[in-house]
Amino acid sequence: MGFGSIKRYLVIIPPLMWLGLFFLIPFFVVLQVSLSDPALTRPPYTAIFTWDSWFPSGYIGDFENYAFLWSDSLYWRSYANSLKIAAVGSFICLLIGYPIAYVIARANSRTRNTLLLLVILPFWTSSLLRVYALIGMYSPNGFINSSLSFFGIIDTPLQLMQTDFAVYSGIVITYLPLMILPLYSALEKLNDDLIEASSDLGAYPLATFWRVTLPLSISGIIAGSLLVFIPSVGEFVIPALLGGPDQLMIGKTLWTEFFNNRDWPVASSVAMIMLAFLVIPMMFLRNTQGLKE
């Protein structure tokens, strides 16, 4: 092994340690809890190994909690609904984010920096505050309802809170910048000559968009959609504050298992399966993308 390759290994040690410390170890902790049984102790679950002084002498964990998740349709409905809300939310972000990213990428460099700053600006406040601001907008005595009734457009306040609309707008407000930035970076690299060539060859602007711009920005679309989709699936704050009580989401179901039922093992199994739902499609996407490049 040459000196250069040793240096290369040294460079990847910090990120590997970071992953190990903050991803792998927590992953195994949750996995272990998901295989245990609840107990009236602190922490409230049993050990999955029996110990003979320093060495584990037996394994007593089981997949009972995973089996339990099959027994009640509540969990599958929660997963399905979360995936749906995350997918729709990401799509709305894409529809709104794409034109914004396009305009920023086409702007001259000075305006571009200002526009980018405006996109990032909301990140300087806590996302919780932004969600609370929406409550101020949507509540029966909030900004929208009081302005509408002030102008005599409505008599009784519109029900805006505790609706799907409120949840989707919460997702958009919270995650839109995560969609715009990767789209922008893909569109910015777009070579103007290609667009020019397309119109020189007789394509209408719309055809140019579908056949040149869109395919070339596909990596930005995938990256942006994943960045919005993944946190949206496990989202708890937005549905809890803006959504109605009848909206099943896996984040809320997990909360109930963990806090109300005090059943950390079942809560951990719910989390493990959610992870599987997110990781498997991502690996699939990574592979297909890898093939292309």
Partner: peptide, 19 residues
């Protein structure tokens, strides 16, 4: 106890979500 808690919370989820 844990079993009773689960039963009461599950009923509550049914109330809130209809499921």
């Amino acid at each position: 106890d844990a079993r009773t808690d689960r039963a009461i919370n599950r009923e509550w989820t049914t109330v809130k979500t209809g499921q």
